[in-house]
């Protein structure tokens, strides 16, 4: 069953982007927002005000794990890792998005025919 719920579309969209950029390596909040922006050529801009509640929610749900690292004498950074649960979740979500988009294009494509 698809996890894509229309009223929750924006939330799921942001969650998917965050989990996807964490798929290969751990990153901190700033790097996550920057990578999403760069990889989408500036189309998806994730405001940090939106980013933190999602990151903390995903961490609480066990999809990601935050690890504090000392950077320099005065600075600490929180890096996020994708957990096994999160890896499974984003893999499923990715498939759901594909189905969702295919169905969307099936309807939209009518316009161009």
């Amino acid at each position: 069953m698809s996890r894509i719920d229309i009223p929750q579309l924006t939330k799921l969209f942001n969650e998917s982007l965050i989990l996807a950029v964490l798929f290969n390596e751990k990153k901190h909040g700033y790097q996550i927002a920057l990578e999403i922006e760069q990889r989408s050529d500036g189309l998806f801009k994730l405001n940090h005000g939106t980013l933190y509640p999602i990151l903390h929610k995903l961490e609480k749900e066990g999809h990601i794990k935050g690890v504090w690292k000392q950077e320099g004498p005065k600075r600490q950074r929180k890096y996020y890792n994708l957990t096994a649960k999160g890896r499974k979740y984003i893999t499923g979500l990715s498939a759901d998005w594909r189905t969702f988009m295919r169905q969307f294009y099936d309807i939209i494509d009518e316009v161009e025919k």
Binding site: H28, G29, Y30, Y52, R75, K78
Partner: peptide, 17 residues
């Protein structure tokens, strides 16, 4: 405190950016 610490580090990076 942990949330503020996390945001403070990102603020620094954004500022440099």
């Amino acid at each position: 405190s942990r949330i503020i610490l996390e945001i403070a580090a990102d603020l620094d990076d954004l500022y440099q950016h």
